[in-house]
Amino acid sequence: MGKKRTDLLRGTLDLLILKALALEPLHGVGVSRRITQITRGAFQVSFGSLFPSLHRMEEKGWVEVEWRASENNRRAKYYRLTSSGRAQLKTEERDWSQVVQIMTAAVESA
């Protein structure tokens, strides 16, 4: 599946979502909160882009879904990373550190 990866921001969002889900299954609001948490409040993901991304990942088979009770006993849809999702997370992490290295080198070369 040769997805073009020109949109850096979307790539970042996917990586953040995968990262957020790496630890434990979360529902949509949980994913948003976890991203805020792991970026130390720097990223506030809008739900308008979060939900479509989650559904795309579901279609691609990176996450599985499951309905269960939330922490305060409400029914919520939880997303869990699949094995191919974990593989994707590894790839994206590697890609990202490459980008960072290249960009850092480029910026510092001045």
Binding site: H27, G28, V29, F47, F51, W67, S70, N72, R74, R75, A76, K77
Partner: peptide, 14 residues
């Protein structure tokens, strides 16, 4: 629908 509804409720409680 259900998913978004539950998101609204979760946020409201928060």
């Amino acid at each position: 629908d259900d998913e978004l509804q539950s998101a609204v409720e979760l946020l409201t409680q928060e």
